[in-house]
């Protein structure tokens, strides 16, 4: 208290004059009042500072939206919205007849994400059930640590391991000229979304009231029947949130799949080299010029819209979750 007064006293004394303080009769009272004036100014200054800090996040979102829209529109206008999103040919570097169709990439992103979800969610969900209900506590704690570590490994490391292990394996298994395929990207994405799926669904499963499970057991259901037919449905909105989170992760990932997907803008098929929305931006920004560059910004805008949709879905599930609890 004393420290506060002595350090801020001098500076505040000047400001205190601006505040309308009605001095009470007598010395001591006046001193208290002048201190209060200092404090009031300080309070309102700090309040303003905190409001500004609070608004920074809003500012960032506005900056991102505005810049993406401003820089994404020109190329779309030039190419035509319909041509842009439904064109199947992406050859922006072609000097005589450049073509800007991003349908292959949109489909690749959707297929890749769907594939990652199809592989990652069931395994992740089963793992969450195992950790939450079946495993003994010590084993579960160790596995949880390692899964957390998995979440902390940078995406380029996944890309590197995928490049060195998965891509050659796919090449030899399917007898292809090159193993950089959609399949490789799907497997890498599935592994990368596992940690978030496991931890979010486990949290949801842990939050299921014990009474539900006890009632089910008392009615003669086995433990496993209880976990899958009582606990899992009770945790379904949390698990749905986990899935949506996984979708967001998978659709936004760039570097890891840039290293394993081959980066040719084919229409997606499991064993062909493909280009995602994200990898088009990450891979081509370095050398793109003029319209090509603007088209990449437009791809960013498309990706942004996808993400906003997913975020809206996630918010919906989370809100539902909160109300459920």
């Amino acid at each position: 208290m004393n420290e506060y007064v002595t350090t801020k006293g001098e500076k505040g004394a000047v400001k205190a004059g601006k505040e309308k303080i009605v001095p009470a009769a007598g010395q001591p009272a006046e001193r208290i009042d002048s201190k209060r004036g200092v404090k009031d100014v300080m309070e309102s200054v700090m309040r303003a500072v905190f409001v500004i800090c609070g608004l920074v996040a809003v500012g960032f979102v506005l900056i991102i939206s505005v810049y993406l829209i401003i820089s994404g529109i020109p190329a779309i206008r030039e190419v035509g919205l319909w041509n842009f999103i439904s064109g199947t040919n992406w050859s922006p570097a072609n000097r005589t007849e450049p073509s800007f169709g991003i349908l292959p990439m949109i489909l690749t992103s959707i297929y890749g994400t769907a594939g990652a979800i199809v592989i990652g969610v069931p395994i992740g969900f089963l793992m969450a059930v195992y950790l939450s209900k079946v495993a003994n506590r010590k084993v579960a704690a160790v596995i949880r640590e390692v899964v957390d570590l998995l979440a902390g490994i940078p995406s380029v490391v996944y890309g590197l391991v995928g490049m060195m292990v998965l891509v050659p394996a796919i090449r030899t298994t399917f007898n292809l000229p090159a193993g950089d395929t959609l399949l490789a990207a799907i497997v890498v994405l599935a592994i990368m979304i596992l940690p978030s799926i496991i931890s979010v669904s486990e949290t949801a499963l842990n939050a299921v009231p014990r009474e539900y499970e006890e009632a089910s057991l008392a009615l003669g259901a086995t433990e496993l029947e209880t976990y899958f037919r009582v606990s899992a449905p009770a945790a379904k909105s949390g698990i749905a949130a986990a899935v949506v989170l996984g979708v967001g992760r998978a659709i936004g990932e760039a570097m890891a799949i840039l290293m394993v997907a081959g980066n040719v803008a084919n229409m997606p098929s499991l064993l062909s080299s493909v280009k995602f929305l994200t990898t088009a931006i990450a891979g081509e920004m370095g050398y793109a010029g003029d319209l090509h560059r603007q088209a990449l910004f437009s791809i960013g805008l498309v990706l942004f819209l996808f993400i906003m949709l997913i975020n809206a879905a996630l918010n919906l599930f989370l809100k539902h979750n909160k109300e459920g609890n």
């Binding site: 996040a57 960032f60 979102v61 900056i63 991102i64 810049y67 993406l68 967001g248 659709i251 936004g252 990932e253 760039a254 994200t278 931006i281 990450a282 920004m285 990449l296 910004f297 960013g300 990706l303 942004f304 993400i307 906003m308 997913i310 975020n311 996630l314 918010n315």
Partner: peptide, 14 residues
């Protein structure tokens, strides 16, 4: 929440 769900490539562009 929007910021935390944004993919890094968007932050890269912006």
């Amino acid at each position: 929440e929007t910021l935390s769900g944004m993919p890094s490539i968007i932050f890269a562009l912006v």
